[in-house]
Design a protein around this nucleic acid. Sequence first.
DNA 1: GAGACAGATTGGAGCGCTCCAATTGGTCTC
DNA 2: GAGACCAATTGGAGCGCTCCAATCTGTCTC
Lengths: 340, 340
Amino acid sequence: MSVGRPTMEDVASRAGVSRALVSLVMQDSPKVSVHSRAAVLEAADELGYRPNLMARHLASRRTMTIGLVLDDLHNPFFAETTDGIYRAAESAGYRIVISAGLRSVNSEMAAINTFLQFRVDGIILVGPRSGPEPMQELASEVPLVVVGRASNSELFDTVNVDERMGARLVVDHLVAHGHVRIAHIDGGTGAGATQRRAGYLRAMGDHGLNDHIRIVAGSYTEAAGAAGASVLLADPELPTAVFSANDLMAAGTLGRLDDEGFKAPGDISVVGFDNTALAALSNIALTTVDQPREVLGEMAMACLVQRLENGRTKACHHVVAPTLVTRDSSGPAPGRSSKG
Amino acid sequence: MSVGRPTMEDVASRAGVSRALVSLVMQDSPKVSVHSRAAVLEAADELGYRPNLMARHLASRRTMTIGLVLDDLHNPFFAETTDGIYRAAESAGYRIVISAGLRSVNSEMAAINTFLQFRVDGIILVGPRSGPEPMQELASEVPLVVVGRASNSELFDTVNVDERMGARLVVDHLVAHGHVRIAHIDGGTGAGATQRRAGYLRAMGDHGLNDHIRIVAGSYTEAAGAAGASVLLADPELPTAVFSANDLMAAGTLGRLDDEGFKAPGDISVVGFDNTALAALSNIALTTVDQPREVLGEMAMACLVQRLENGRTKACHHVVAPTLVTRDSSGPAPGRSSKG
DNA sequence: GAGACAGATTGGAGCGCTCCAATTGGTCTC
DNA sequence: GAGACCAATTGGAGCGCTCCAATCTGTCTC
């Protein structure tokens, strides 16, 4: 077919200059005369020249590319965090490339490995499944920022929302509305689930509600939220409020409650966590904890830039405060439980 | 810090063989003795060696990498299509790298450009916004497959669901349930929106319902679905069924109807398109047209593989038949409109 | 008018790899 | 035991680029 893509050499000879000069122009170097620059750009344009990033990296040892590993493309949380990352990356002059973790440790590793082979300048992991050890190891190979998994590693940075505080906001909100029997369907081993559970426990205790603590095991899926609701409905004494560990679960909880003839918030209030687009849907209208996802993304990228440009090597761990967003799924506790 | 990543040379000297032999081992060549292979692998492992994809590409002209451009990470449609692509890519031995189009032509171009610079072996565009011309141009530079945008280009392949047929399924279903005043809130310039609208028009006509055609302009967002509902509710004669151009819009439509005191499907049936996870949510339970998204993804990847491995250059255009998934949002038309 | 100096430009080495042609060391054959 | 042959291995060229040191061309200064 075609004789192959044009190279810098082709551009150089067409513009009547040396390859090195073309390189300078491509790098926007200030030490090129206006005249040559114009000639080079014109030649490049005519030839449809595109710098070969591979070769460029090989020579310069940099790719100006950040690898972003997202655990689950289906979860809007990741999309929103990504928005923040893209924005920050753009203004810092980096390009983002994504690889999906597909909800399994193995494919997460494969995704990371792809980036390592591409020699990206840095990696951002959002909601990773891998444990601390592989993470430490990875951090020793490449600048690393982890979003949504707390750690006090000295090798990589983390950016998180204050999960405990979020859970506390939920409990405070419900208690303020007169709820006492507040159950929690937890997120199992999901990112942040442990802290959300801990925050719930602590807040319940602080309100003198230790006797009303009720935790059902779950995971970050709609089905788990629904199943948790069923479990709770089988209790001898029903809760007046349920705190589901994330929005998707809360949607499941709401659905199941509805199926079983319970109204939210009339009979039982339901609160989620994350404030994804799902929660805002008017047929769901979920009270939930807002994670400033875009901000988290921007911070993550900022951390990476500090390491890359300012040579920071000391780890930093950011914790951002969440806020509560109240919608229709929660309300006052029903006057002294009528059922159960 | 460290002296830099180990190279093939390092592995070679450690294993006591030549660089070329290490290369053969890394490529899983059969012409390496069992003994040398073991020695090389061991040395590589000890050194933590990872082949440098950049250098590899530079020498071999291939990356074994496919660039995937997704228009909108927020839309679950893309996640599900991606699942199919990943699966097919894995079995074909390719790796996938994603870049987000961020719902704008500009960032879509930037995403494409990134891949072109990375010299990926092929590109898959899902739901692209760019018009036919830039697409033709792109196809002349790299093997290209477009999902979700019909075209009869001779340069690139396309994979699509039969949108018209999908719309027809919706109308048929509603008519079978006695509906006559079936309105459509369209998807504006969104991917497939034109065909869905055309399919609706045609099907209405075929049922002799030309007089009841009612189209409201929209776009693929929840807000547009809600706004469309409001427009319809202001009509002198209310529809008994609404076909919203995608699920997200249908969710908005349902929400707005509910807000205004209309029950679905009791008062008005609502049908969506796509059968995203959203539709399956029990609080939404949307009747919708299922696009076999994973299948679409697999087919797209298969097209690329044919071009890459079998040297196919003739374009092929696949159209897949959709199916209707009935849930709670649609039902029999109310006995001869009581209101309106 | 010679020296100094800054700006613009260039050739060449080398980044880590693949691929080809060439080499090595057996084993087989007659 | 010479030639043929095969499998295993190797050195070297070269992929497209960046970066460095070297060169070239003016201009300025005293």
